[in-house]
Design a protein around this nucleic acid. Structure first.
Length: 465
RNA sequence: GCCGGGAUGACAGAGUGGCCAUGUGGCGGACUGCAGAUCCGUACACGGGAGUUCAAAUCUCCCUCCCGGCCCCA
């Protein structure tokens, strides 16, 4: 069955058909690095992390490009406040960003271009747009002329005339039309600037993405992603620039992730209602955070609150327990049922849900069903060792995409493992002679050492926490 | 004002024209020396109003409310 995904451009789910058979170029708008990352950034990054992992799992050769906007008004303002070079500030924030993302086990993109490294390409593109008559220079700045665009608003379905009537944007002093947007901004005195044919200045916000897509992927990118708040004007303007410059369709599939809200409002730096990733990770494991964020369809908004994050942690523990139990009985289970039918069905259902626009929430539900059935077989003493392995295989596949489970496999082969086995034998003897005080002491002392014991019908099993 | 997305049980969050989402939490059981884990059963639902249909939470229309976008933002 084909993989389908929701395309914001056409407003429907479409089968994925990359431009070049098995290769996919995906560009995801990154962050403006003027401050630390919050949970909303994590949502976007994790959503696309899973999407890319799934595409790779399906056999595609994926080139994933995510940019850093390292030159912009906010960075300049912040750098001035603290008195450092803007590019130093942005580099520092990039380092922080990678620290957070690595902690959340987000796989790195193939390339992370920065606006400041892409300057030649940006200037070439701006000049090209002027040469083709789509853009004009005015007092050292360059603007894209929206009236020259063949189609305006095809992504966001905005109508130029209505927008102006409704928004009543005052024309900027250098603009011919209020909806024109800057491709190149003339430098103000003292600002960081690059040389260009129009004097010193720096790129407008939208042009870097167009230039990076062209440079790192090509005229047409298969998938372009970002948060829903970027649809207008950012992505709309990218389309105008790129299609005018390249004379080719810019993007085949537009994917937008829903925003993280808090008390029903968008989490954002400007609203000051954000939680930093590093603060959240002080209270919750990376697995819990990932699981929480993947508990909703990527395209839907998700309302954050501490309680639902805790719930996600408990819910995840359920899957973790099953996984750990299966590992624990891998060489001891005595049943005869290899659970193959069950596991094949789960694996198939999981694939189908992920293939349906990356429906992580439903894919998780499949895992719960598998969990329940597997636990039942285990507690009835029916599960075979092969069966435990089959269940583990499905969980491993799930985890290769979601990356939320931790290895709790007993390491019984080394000395410490053998010592734990010995203690469990002694505890078993204590229990047989009803010396529960002794048995409980052993359990308690081992727990203090990070070894968790659970009594099952087939005897006690243990794992490292 | 214009554009887009929503409204589902205590909470979180799926989905489909007729059958159970799922998880957390409740309640009642099973198992157990105790813990823990696990399993079984159970209650609680589809914003409001009209229509289509044998059948609608699921399709159509209207209404209400919420969120996002229209300066920056994942």
């Amino acid at each position: 069955m084909a993989l389908v995904l929701y395309n914001t451009l056409t407003k429907r789910k479409e089968p994925l058909e990359p431009l070049h058979k098995d290769k996919i170029g995906i560009y995801v708008c990154g962050v403006t690095v003027y401050d630390q990352s919050h949970l909303g950034h994590a949502k976007s990054a994790i959503n696309f992390d899973v999407i890319v992992r799934w595409l790779r799992h399906r056999g595609y050769d994926v080139k994933h490009v995510t940019n850093f906007t390292d030159v912009d008004d906010k960075i300049i303002a912040r750098a001035n406040e603290i008195g450092i070079d803007p590019l130093k500030l942005s580099q520092r924030m990039i380092d922080e960003y990678f620290g957070d993302m690595d902690a959340l086990r987000i796989r790195r993109a193939s390339v992370y271009p920065k606006a400041s490294d892409t300057m030649e390409d940006i200037i070439r593109m701006v000049q090209g747009l002027i040469d083709k008559g789509y853009a004009y220079e005015s007092n050292g700045s360059v603007y894209f002329s929206v009236r020259k665009a063949k189609e305006y608003g095809k992504l966001s379905r905005q109508n130029l005339d209505q927008m102006q009537a409704g928004a009543r944007i005052e024309p900027g002093e250098d603009k011919q039309n209020p909806m024109d947007f800057a491709l190149w901004k003339a430098a103000k005195p003292g600002e960081i600037a690059w040389d260009s044919p129009w004097g010193k200045g720096r790129p407008g916000w939208h042009i870097e993405c167009s230039a990076m897509c062209l440079k790192h992927i090509g005229k047409t990118v298969d998938i372009h992603g970002g948060g829903t708040e970027l649809i207008f004007p950012h992505h709309e303007n990218e389309i105008l620039q790129s299609e005018a410059y390249n004379d080719a369709p810019f993007v085949r599939y537009w994917m937008h992730n829903g925003l993280l809200t808090i008390d029903q409002e968008k989490m954002s730096k400007s609203l000051k209602n954000f939680f930093l990733i590093k603060d959240i990770l002080g209270k919750h494991t990376p697995g819990t955070v990932r699981f929480y964020l993947l508990n909703a369809q990527y395209s839907q908004p998700l309302d954050y609150n501490e309680k639902s994050l805790e719930e996600a942690g408990k819910a995840l523990e359920r899957l973790q327990n099953t996984y750990s139990s299966m590992k624990a009985v891998l060489t001891t289970s005595k049943g005869t049922d290899d659970a193959s039918e069950l596991c094949e069905k789960a694996a198939k259902d999981f694939e189908a849900k992920m293939d349906d626009d990356f429906s992580t929430r439903e894919a998780i539900a499949v895992m719960y069903d598998l969990s329940r059935e597997a636990n039942k077989l285990l507690s009835d003493g029916k599960l075979s060792q092969k069966g435990a392995q089959n269940v583990i295989d499905v969980f491993d596949k799930f985890n290769s995409i979601f990356d939320v489970l931790v290895e709790t496999q007993r390491t019984g082969e080394d000395l410490s493992g053998k010592l734990v086995d010995l203690l469990l034998e002694m505890r078993e003897e204590a229990r047989e002679r009803k010396d529960f005080a002794q048995a409980d002491t052993i359990r308690k002392r081992l727990a203090e050492l990070g070894i968790e014991i659970q009594d099952t019908q087939d005897g006690a099993v243990w794992k490292r926490k």
